[in-house]
């Protein structure tokens, strides 16, 4: 049996604990839509009373730089 689900997207979750704090990456959720991603994020990452929380579709992140892999090019 396979549990078929609609195509899900990975969203990165960012939060700020209090005004003036850094915005931090606290985790990820997977969801069919951004609206659902917001709900999942709010329920999953409820360890703080965040002043700010947002979700970003991972595909929308444009990387300027990434850590150079220790084995980059060599393959695992």
């Amino acid at each position: 049996m396979s549990v078929k689900t609609k195509q899900r997207t990975t969203f990165d979750v960012f939060t700020r604990i209090e005004r003036g704090d850094d915005l931090i990456h606290i985790g990820t959720v997977e969801a069919e839509t951004a609206e659902l991603a917001k709900v999942y994020a709010a329920y999953t990452y409820d360890e703080e009373d965040w002043v700010e929380m947002c979700v970003v579709d991972r595909a929308q992140l444009d990387w300027v730089r990434k850590p150079k892999g220790l084995f980059a090019g060599k393959g695992a």
Binding site: K66, P67, G69, L70, F71, A72, K74, A76
Partner: peptide, 24 residues
């Protein structure tokens, strides 16, 4: 060789961030 390098690195505090930092 990769294993020895990675083991030494992480013991020195190297943080693995992605698959390209890993051996199998």
């Amino acid at each position: 060789e990769n294993a020895a390098l990675l083991k030494e690195k992480v013991q020195e505090g190297f943080m693995v961030e992605g698959m390209e930092d890993m051996n199998e």
